[in-house]
């Protein structure tokens, strides 16, 4: 069964809350691990140097394949983003990742666009060089029986609120920072044509263009978008469990039409945050 992206992330929180601090982590209660559960989990396992994973029989081989960076017809290899700038340039990450995906989800261009913009954000904002980020990750999984594709990109770096704080951009709480991040505001340039367009346009392509859904988790805040009218901001109780930013997108099996018209100009952010809750 495929649950919502938020549900998948909460599974990760639940697994980590149940972790006793030992070098073994128990995922055996979960018979299915989507990218949105698995990627932050692998990040925490790496950071906390956890050596053993207890898995449900349904997921044991799956986890081994992921850790061995194996790809199949329905999933890309689990990619740890390269630190080195030249290695990054040479890998043509978005193009090569999108080649492995089913182009019926959005289109080949849309898949490349999404992955390029989200990985660009990690390199631009997470600052491997400054020592804020240990790792960036990408992973994509198709559910052919459900005609859905999950794309998950995360880093354990500075986070959106952290980056805004460092740049002197004010915000009320972590959710407000996420709202600003998808409102054509950038810490790199005040010129809205130069920067700040990757995230809102990616969300627009997926939610409005494809009818898909999105989840942004950054530090303690999240925005879960089921569709343009149905979305929710909230704060998580995830201290010491999650660090950085995770963006998960769930695409449906249809092609986005009029791509460039959709993303040409920032139309205003339809996902308004009411300060306090939701």
């Amino acid at each position: 069964m495929v649950y919502s992206l938020l549900n998948d992330f909460n599974k990760f929180i639940k697994i980590m809350r149940n972790h006793d601090g030992s070098n073994k982590i128990d995922t055996s209660t979960e018979s299915f691990l989507s990218p949105t559960t698995l990627i932050p989990l692998l990040c925490e396992i790496n950071n906390k140097k956890i050596q053993y994973i207890t898995a449900h029989p349904n997921t044991s081989n799956y986890i081994k394949d992921i850790l061995n960076k194996k790809a199949t017809n329905t999933r890309t290899p689990f990619i740890i983003l390269p630190y080195d700038e030249n290695e990054r340039k040479n890998k043509e990450l978005s193009h090569n990742t999108a080649l492995k995906l089913n182009k019926d989800y959005g289109s080949f261009f849309v898949l490349k666009y999404i992955i390029a913009e989200l990985t660009n954000n990690i390199y631009d904002h997470s600052s491997f060089e400054e020592g804020y980020s240990n790792q960036g990750y990408t992973y994509c999984q198709e559910y052919p029986n459900k005609d859905l594709l999950d794309i998950c990109v995360m880093d354990d770096g500075l986070s959106i609120p952290g980056r805004f704080k460092k740049s002197g951009i004010e915000f009320n709480d972590e959710c407000h920072a996420i709202e600003k991040a998808i409102s054509n505001i950038s810490t790199k340039s005040e010129d809205p044509l130069e920067r700040g367009n990757g995230l809102w346009s990616t969300i627009k392509l997926v939610v409005e263009g494809n009818g898909g859904s999105a989840l942004i988790v950054s530090d303690r805040g999240y925005l879960h978008i089921k569709n343009k009218e149905n979305y929710k901001y909230d704060l998580l109780n995830n201290n010491d469990i999650f660090k950085g930013t995770l963006i998960s997108l769930r695409l449906k099996k249809n092609q986005v039409q009029n791509i460039h018209e959709l993303i040409e100009i920032f139309p205003g952010n339809p996902y308004k945050y009411k300060i306090g809750r939701g």
Binding site: K112, Y113, A116, N120, D191, L193, E194, N197, S201
Partner: peptide, 12 residues
Amino acid sequence: FISRSFAQAYVS
């Protein structure tokens, strides 16, 4: 392929 981020930085 050209990403939006690349195109923006290039044109700017």
